[in-house]
Design a protein around this nucleic acid. Sequence first.
RNA 1: GCCGCGUUCGUCUAGCCUGGUCUAGGACGCCGGCCUUUCACGCCGGUAACACGGGUUCAAAUCCCGUACGCGGUACCA
Length: 490
Amino acid sequence: MAFDPPVRVRFAPSPTGRLHVGGLRTALYNYLFARKHEGDVVLRIEDTDQTRSVRGAEDDIRDALSWVGLDCDEGPDQGGEYAPYRQSERTEHYREYAQTLIEAGRAYYAFDTEGELEEMREGNRAYDGSTRRQMRNSLTLSDAEVDRLVDAGDYVVRLKVPRQESARFDDVVRGSVSFDTSEIDDQVLLKSDGMPTYHLANIVDDHLMDISHVIRGEEWLSSTPKHVLMYDALGWEPPTFAHLPLILSPDSDRGGKLSKRDANELGIPVYVTDYREAGYEPAALLNFLALLGWSPGTEEELFSLDEMVDAFSLDRVGASGVQFDLDKLRWVNEHYIRDLSVEELAEKARPYVEDEGYEVSDERLHTICELVQDRIQVVPEVVTDNRYFFEDPKGYEEAGVEKRWTDESADLLLAYADRLEDIDTFDTDAVETKLRTLADEENVGAGAVIHPARLAVSGRSYGPGVFGLLAAVGKEACIRRMHRAAEELG
RNA sequence: GCCGCGUUCGUCUAGCCUGGUCUAGGACGCCGGCCUUUCACGCCGGUAACACGGGUUCAAAUCCCGUACGCGGUACCA
């Protein structure tokens, strides 16, 4: 469905740090909406704060987006007819419109020092219609003085917010939102270093780039009336706004936006590229994120990117904050892992296996992956959850021993180990046959051997089917581990 | 503090706009069972919610008002 004025959305991160999952979700929703309506996605880098800019951040953003496969139509890399796409390279535009605003009487120069501003704030006043007359600006100083100060170059431009008006706008997810302008202060538009603030740059670029829909986080909701005032002052039509619910920390006691600290303390990655390191499937991350704040209205939960594009609609986006749920992400990821071919899984798992210092042949890794594929949730668990494939167990799971190890276990295990010696082709069928005949001859249930064998070889009471497990661990190791378990567990 | 936004199972949500079909549906998690003389997958079942108080109405999760709570904003940060 294409819109009349063509849909153009922008994802506008600031390179003050690596791309956050919340940022990725914003990018996703923009992407889904644009693709759904056959529109364009613009990547715009909002680097107007030179002091907070972090080297490498832009590369990380690029990396993250390309890893998950959200491709933009225009941006610093691919260019486009609205270039440049870095705000630091567009300063002349901002200066031009700041000037227009001043000439229209909708903005003014201000020369207050930091000390003067501080003093005002201590008096609990805001720089607004009620105080601007007491400050040092082009509204209170003589023209000659203003010219002199402007020439000296040390000034800012502030928006002249009208008193006692209502600034209202429609938000796709929240409906009509309105603010009384007396609550809004005279926001700085152009900083003393010549750079624009977010507010100015944002509306100038959105207008110049023909952005039709502004889809961004709720933290921007309160600054939107300022933007609406500026659109009005410049005689521009504002875009359609959609403010997305914030992603909150899953720790309800802590509350607030999901932060870097939560990441470390709750084991949740916050940066997109950390999800890559942690072995999540990019498609799964996207799928999970889509569901965090949006609902298709059906009972489907698993979507490919294309399916999401199809099902997406902004008016099915919720308005309340959502807690990040790592368990749910893992569940989604689990499904994507099952959809992988064994070869793909093995290929993805290899680096994690090698990082742990283990060596393994392609053939054996393939066998291991086959065994564990439907019981892991993230790729690295091929090794972290199944170390016994690579080294002898360092101990035995206590609960398992308690439940499964009996007085006769050691003898049965030793007998089984003996019979394993006779096997030439040590495969799943062979170890199973040996075990079942032993159980028959000893007149015990197969479980009487199965459980101790699993415990001895893997150190645990759960895992892949035992016979496949034993075969994959190999003859020598199995026999060695059984002897050791018989000794240690008696 | 002030302003704005929000509030359905522990969590993500459907339902709310267009009151009755909601003894509130699904999913994650958790618990139990089946399958497997093993583990998991799978399947089946269970657990658990309309923040509170007033209205309006024959009827309210759904509409209105208030309160509480949560979140966001309140910078020459984005």
